[in-house]
Amino acid sequence: MIPAYLHNLERLLSFDRALARRVRQEAEVHLLEAVAADPAADKSEAERRAIAGFGEPKEIAAQFATISLVRQARSIAGTVVLIVFGIFIAMKARLEWYAVTQWTMPTDKKSIADVVLFVDRYAFWTSVFLGVLVYLYMCRRELLTGSPRSLHHIYNLCVVTTGALAVSVVGDGLLTALQLHGAQPCSASIPPLLSMIFEIVGVSFLGLRVLSVMRRARLTASLLGP
């Protein structure tokens, strides 16, 4: 009886495997202790009482779902802030490298580079502004209570921030390609390429994290009800 109950509880919490495992272990210990403490001679009756006392798996899972969503929102918000900062550093480092090596944009590509730079700059500062908003939301106390409105705002902000950052990284990629195009392959082109790889990996990681959290949020929505 207890294994079936635990299996059901773990299944309902499958949107967060680590949480499901931990809750199952704790619930198992609890139920076994409750059965051991029950004076009833009939073991199955003691198990039935222990399970009834523990409560409905769906109700318990719904409470854990809210906790999980809050944790994921905080984690994704922290990731957004870190990635935006990391990309800013990579961008600055690349520009410093161009300055140190006196590597200027070829004049025939200057006009297109100016347009890309304009879009890139605005997309990046939009992502910084949104990143700050995400951070401020993360610091709000209401988030700890799992208010669905706060969580919804966090997720939406993260999606828009990631979008703006992706546009900025594409812009950086185009600018780097324009800068390096036609130049002889040399060791001086390695730092800009590495910084671009860092940016692409960073924004891809963020995009995947946001998608994963959104998917989990959809899975848990069924537990939380309308």
Binding site: G55, E59, I67
Partner: peptide, 14 residues
């Protein structure tokens, strides 16, 4: 309901 104490414990830990 005993099961409701565990979400509270997790929330307080978080």
């Amino acid at each position: 309901p005993e099961g409701t104490v565990y979400p509270a414990l997790h929330r307080l830990e978080q």
